[in-house]
Amino acid sequence: MRYELMLPHQIRKAIAENWPVVLPLGVLEYHGEHMAVGMDTLVVVKTLDLLEKERDIVILPPFYYGAASYAVAPPEGTGSVQVDGKALAPFGEELFYSLLRIGFRNIHAFIHHQTENFAAGMPTDLAFKTAGRQAIFRFLEKHRGEGWWGAETMPDYYAGHAVGENFFNWVRVHSLMPTSMNGKYPFDHAGIGETSLMLALCPDAVDAARFADNTGWYTSSARDASAELGRQGVAMIMDNLRATLSA
């Protein structure tokens, strides 16, 4: 369900049944002359739309204002919006802390931008990962008091981890495309892989007539994109979403 459309009794039901609460996390970044600047976020939004038809989830309003960077192109006339990670982390902490106060304990953010380096981290995902940890520590210290971990009531803390009871799983950040897709689907920026995903999920975000206007090396394969290839990528992404949110 879309969070902004939920009534309080539906929110209470989602809390009681521990539905996944999902934040589509992304950026607005130049993706060549042929593709919309919102691609990195749109791919998360559109695949979550598909997942919503299969299972109970809460989908938060998407966050488009991540750290796009100007690595691809300067912003003048191209549309990239850059918000520094130092500004993102405080926002993310307040957002996650608020969701914890509401009662959610199964909170996830999915990101596609710069996730070829997801294991090491890049500015947007690192900011929100840090924000999630800070929000959890802050919440626990407020509601359990300082020294909560060392309290006599916590001797089963590590045993709980073995059966999946981990406070720090209350907020998690994931890559939309897992490493298991490496070599099975093209990972690129505005090339055949991303263009195909948009042709499959949001064809209005692609204008094939603009392929000839591209000058960046990274767009050279885009003209070979197809909705059929995109559907193959979407199927793999959907498998990852199902597995991650069922864990």
Rank of each mutant, 00 (worst) to 15 (best):
Q10Y: 07
P62N: 00
K184Q: 11
H108S: 09
M238T: 00
D125T: 01
Q82C: 10
A71C: 10
F187S: 10
G121L: 13
V173P: 11
L99A: 05
M181C: 14
F128M: 12
M35T: 07
V173Q: 02
R223P: 03
G164P: 14
V22E: 08
F167D: 11
P24R: 00
F137D: 15
Y30M: 11
I59A: 02
S246W: 04
D207L: 02
K86C: 06
V21K: 05
H34I: 08
V173A: 01
D40E: 03
F118M: 09
N106K: 13
F91C: 05
L5T: 08
L176Q: 10
W148S: 06
R210T: 03
S220A: 15
N182R: 10
W217E: 13
Y70P: 12
P8A: 01
H34L: 06
Y158P: 12
E94V: 06
R138N: 00
P74R: 01
E93Q: 15
V206E: 05
Y70H: 10
L60R: 07
K86G: 06
T130Y: 02
R138E: 04
S221N: 04
V83R: 04
A68N: 05
L48G: 13
Y218T: 05
A162N: 15
Q134C: 06
P61F: 03
A120E: 15
L5Y: 06
G145L: 06
R133H: 09
Y65N: 11
G121K: 12
D213M: 07
T78I: 12
G38F: 04
E4H: 04
P74H: 02
E33N: 07
K86F: 08
H108K: 03
A222C: 05
W19R: 03
P90H: 03
F187G: 11
I192P: 07
E228P: 06
C202W: 14
E52H: 04
W170H: 07
A68M: 07
I136H: 09
I111Q: 14
P186W: 00
A151I: 04
L5F: 09
T130M: 09
E194Y: 05
L51W: 11
M154G: 09
A127E: 08
S69D: 13
S246G: 05
A14V: 02
T47R: 04
E152S: 13
H143S: 04
F187I: 08
A14L: 06
A109I: 04
R101Q: 05
T130S: 13
G147W: 05
V163L: 10
A131S: 11
A135C: 10
P24M: 00
R101F: 00
V83Q: 01
L50W: 08
L50G: 10
Y70W: 12
H189E: 07
G193R: 00
L23H: 07
G32V: 06
I11Y: 11
D40K: 00
M181I: 09
A89F: 04
I192K: 08
A127V: 11
A212D: 14
P178G: 01
N18R: 13
Y70G: 08
G150D: 13
F187M: 10
N18P: 13
Y3C: 09
L201M: 04
E29S: 00
E194H: 02
S220V: 13
N117C: 11
K53T: 09
